[in-house]
């Protein structure tokens, strides 16, 4: 009996091993696109030209690079803090500046938001939030109905901002300035 059992057992073990090898191979390939996002962005403040050459983290930010570079100096804020400047809005005066404190800044229609967009029907109560992490400012949609757009492309997940990028929430477009 032994001569029959041993190869069968080996075949069984090999089959299970191969099944998991397949899963391993597939998952390894599948998480490849997660690994593409660099762990630590080599971002040096005050060197906007370097940013242009930097390979963007993922597809959502790809179109961001040219406009970031073109705005060069006018993307700088005068006082050295990062700010959101209103470019175009139905509810806020143009050129209104919002200084971004460290930590999280929320944008929304509700009175509890840091940046309040009152009476804009296309803005959700809690619309978007800006988070500073590792020297970069990330904008993230907070489950809004109409979405948050960075340079006219819908932001999916946390999207890093570069100086000069345009963030649109409802009818309001902000320019990000560092």
């Amino acid at each position: 009996m032994l001569d029959l059992q041993v190869p069968l057992l080996a075949a069984k073990a090999l089959l299970l091993l191969l099944l998991f090898a397949f899963i391993y191979a597939v998952v390894w390939r599948g998480i490849g696109d997660l690994r593409e996002v660099p762990e630590d962005e080599t971002f040096v403040p005050g060197k906007p030209d370097d940013q242009r050459d930097r390979r963007p983290a993922h597809s959502e930010t790809r179109s961001a690079a040219p406009s970031a570079a073109s705005s060069g100096t006018n993307g700088r804020s005068q006082n050295g803090f990062s700010e959101l400047v209103v470019e175009n809005s139905e509810v806020l005066a143009p050129s209104t500046r919002f200084r971004l404190a460290s930590g999280t800044t929320s944008i929304g229609r509700s009175g509890a938001s840091d940046i309040i967009l009152k009476s804009d029907d296309f803005v959700s109560g809690k619309h978007a939030k800006l988070t500073r992490h590792g020297g970069l400012l990330y904008v993230e949609d907070a489950g809004s109905t109409n979405g948050t757009y960075v340079n006219d492309r819908k932001a999916v997940g946390a999207t890093p901002l570069r100086s000069g990028d345009r963030v649109r929430v409802g009818s309001t477009t902000f320019r990000y300035a560092e």
Binding site: P7, L8, A11, K12, L14, L15, L18, L19, A21, F22, A25, V26, R29
Partner: peptide
């Protein structure tokens, strides 16, 4: 390309048939 997963998938099928024919 995903040649490796393709190869493993076909190997599994082959091994399965081989075991059955044997058993």
């Amino acid at each position: 390309r995903a040649t490796l997963p393709m190869t493993i998938a076909l190997l599994i099928t082959t091994l399965g048939f081989a075991t059955l024919i044997f058993v």
